[in-house]
């Protein structure tokens, strides 16, 4: 069910501006990696590359041993069709800072949409699965609410349920609690912690150092488009080797 992710020497620029300069990252199946680093260091871009929302310029990204966005035959790369890319994305869940729930659909419709129309699951089956996911994030009674009627924390939990309904092999979180009022952060972290405990492979961009310390198997520090230090949380957070990491830890603690 879960799968690993490996990122090898990935480069990416927006026009003339280099944003990723040789990123290497290995995430073993069922493990949690927290990606930390200063704003603008390329964390969001890296996550977006993992499900091919951005194309990389060089290097390769594999999810579950499968090349993302391309097919290799011999030493030639073929770009995947839109359909094949959509199929890959369906198995990679993504949770955004601003939730990005569909405001014109109810909570249940939000969750059912992709299983029915991307996975071709029957509606009955999808609704049943959606209810199970809603229960998992503690929102069983809110299925007919519209997103605007929910608090930020509830919206983010629905967004997590929506991603989970696709039965993803990997979950990507891009600062999932950064847009939340402080008292709502906890409820989202609880859901993510449960998910980690259930063995989901997760890459989490976050500023929640407590979460990283407690839940992460690996903390990776990103600076200027590269991961310059990665290791167990106790090492990276408490005894950073790289001076940039040390400097960053001084600022956030």
């Amino acid at each position: 069910m879960t799968a690993g992710v490996s990122v090898r020497d990935v480069h990416k620029s927006f026009g003339p501006v280099p944003v990723l300069n040789g990123v290497d990252l290995d995430v073993t199946p069922g493990s949690v990696t927290c990606l930390i680093g200063p704003s603008g260091s390329g964390k969001s871009t890296l996550l977006r590359c993992v499900n091919h929302l951005e194309k990389i310029d060089a290097g390769e990204i594999l999810v579950d041993g499968e090349l993302v966005g391309y097919r290799q035959v011999g030493d030639r790369l073929y770009e995947l069709s839109a359909k094949a890319i959509a199929r890959q994305r369906a198995s990679i869940g993504m949770v955004f800072q601003n939730f990005n729930l569909f405001p014109h659909m109810t909570v249940l419709e939000n969750i059912v949409e992709a299983p029915v129309h991307a996975l071709r699951m029957s509606r009955v089956q999808a609704v049943a699965a959606a209810r199970a996911r809603l229960a998992q994030v503690g929102l069983a009674e809110r299925e007919s609410a519209y997103p605007r009627q929910l608090s930020g924390g509830q919206q983010q939990r629905v967004a997590i349920a929506r991603a989970l309904a696709m039965r993803p092999k990997v979950m990507l979180f891009d600062e999932p609690t950064s847009a939340l009022d402080p008292e709502l952060v906890g409820e989202v972290l609880v859901v993510m912690r449960d998910l980690a405990r259930d063995g989901m492979t997760m890459i989490v961009v976050t500023h929640e150092m407590g979460f990283a310390r407690e839940v992460a198997d690996q903390v990776a520090f990103m600076y200027d488009g590269a991961i310059i230090e990665a290791g167990p949380p106790a090492e990276v957070l408490n005894h950073p080797r790289h001076p940039r990491t040390a400097e960053f830890m001084m600022k956030v603690l």
């Binding site: 994305r89 992709a114 991603a163």
Partner: peptide
């Protein structure tokens, strides 16, 4: 329409036509 909407829909693996007709145009 917020570009995040299209992005979320793409990330879910919805087809391009579905994203336009069901997610973007209604909004």
């Amino acid at each position: 329409v917020d570009p995040g909407q299209r992005e979320a829909a793409n990330a879910l693996g919805l087809s391009r036509t579905r994203v336009i007709w069901r997610i973007v145009l209604p909004q």
